[in-house]
């Protein structure tokens, strides 16, 4: 399996993280998204005419939607599937708000920054309200006691919110949910989401 990858992309990280948690080997091919815009190169457009990342290639199969890729990776692991549809579309909404603010703040993309940040705060409030209720029922993940692709879809953009000037300080349940994901065996980090140093013993 080959992932055409950009290290700073939250959506590419979703795929890397999912594969790592499942213990599935994944070959990554770095694409120079910034500054060279290689995702729009003729070679990449041939693979994915939309010119977006991630692109997952497995033999003849080519997948270009993050949600689709998560479903594909977990096709043989029912534990990782649940009532995820609604959360996969929520992840796309998060990407539109917080994800856009992040691209604006890091890579100077055009955006109505106040509007996307406001929308981001509304999304985080919804997520927090849901996780508060999950915790009342003794659950830490979005759809139950164990993580599913719903969590993996929503986690990266949420955790990277501060990159776009949206604070996570005031969402205790989101913070504990992120911590639970970061504590999963096989978890891998990305720039902006560091590992839990406390899980390793002091030297």
């Amino acid at each position: 399996m080959i992932l055409y990858d950009y290290i700073l992309s939250a959506s590419c990280y979703q795929v890397r993280l999912m594969a790592a948690l499942l213990g599935q080997p994944l070959t990554t091919r770095a694409v120079n998204f910034h500054p060279a815009k290689e995702h729009k190169s003729p070679e990449m457009l041939k693979l994915n005419p939309k010119g977006t990342l991630p692109v997952l290639q497995d033999g003849d199969l080519v997948l270009t939607e993050s949600a689709e890729i998560l479903r594909y990776l977990t096709r043989d692991t029912p534990d990782w599937r649940g009532q995820d549809e609604v959360w996969l579309s929520f992840a796309a909404a998060l990407n539109g708000s917080i994800g856009t603010a992040r691209l604006h703040d890091i890579l100077s993309y055009d955006a109505d920054i106040d509007a996307v940040r406001r929308a981001g705060v509304q999304h985080l409030r919804q997520l927090e309200a849901h996780l508060v209720e999950q915790r009342f029922d003794g659950m830490i993940f979005l759809t139950g006691h164990t993580p599913t692709i719903a969590d993996i879809a929503c986690f990266p953009t949420t955790a990277l919110a501060p990159d776009g000037g949206v604070s996570l300080d005031v969402y205790p349940s989101i913070r504990l949910w992120m911590r639970a994901i970061r504590s999963l065996p096989g978890f891998i980090e990305m720039p902006g989401i560091h590992r839990l140093h406390e899980l390793e013993a002091a030297p």
């Binding site: 700073l8 091919r29 770095a30 694409v31 501060p162 990159d163 720039p191 560091h194």
Partner: peptide, 22 residues
């Protein structure tokens, strides 16, 4: 390394620093 890999490595390092700097 390919050019994309070298770029990716350095962007990774700098973005790890960014969360400190801010």
């Amino acid at each position: 390394s390919t050019m994309a890999e070298m770029v990716s490595f350095q962007q990774m390092i700098f973005m790890q620093d960014r969360s400190i700097l801010e």
